[in-house]
Amino acid sequence: MMLIDIVFYTFFLLAALAAVGILITKNVIHAAFYLVVCLISLAGLYVLFDATYLAVVQLLVYAGGVIVLLAFGIMITNRSDGQLLSSSHLLLPGILAFGGVLVLFTIFTVKFSPGIPVNPDSDQVQQMGIVFMTDYLLAFELIAYLLLVVLVGASYLAKSSQS
């Protein structure tokens, strides 16, 4: 077994176990930290799958931004009496959906994935920058406007309404 395989399986297991941890924990802040572990492991997997640019974006935006947002959300909306919310409902339908989707996707995966070729190294970031500003310029501009609208909208919604 090569070193890269060991790294790969470590990230693989960490991501899967962190997802299980989110499911079984009753504490919201623990779930947020399990999500951090899962996201960072996924960034590692992205590197191993030759997606270095997306790995950096994942670390910056997810592990940096989204988690801080979530942590603030948890701190603000936590109950002051320290009592945890009752944690689960709809257990049987949930487990049925979980099993069904997992079996379905695994069948698709095993059936259709063999023979995917592997891409040799390339100058990804430069290539992607060029594609962003040429082929996908409309999508790029639209997502910039979307972020502006989200910024204004979120600050308006979160503003204390003194009416």
Binding site: I22, C38, S86, H89, F98
Partner: peptide, 24 residues
Amino acid sequence: GLGLSAFLFSMGLLVIIIKRNAIF
């Protein structure tokens, strides 16, 4: 990678269905 993706998707679905706290 595809298998892990399937597992994470189903796990997220399970969390959405069975948890009662909106942050979960």
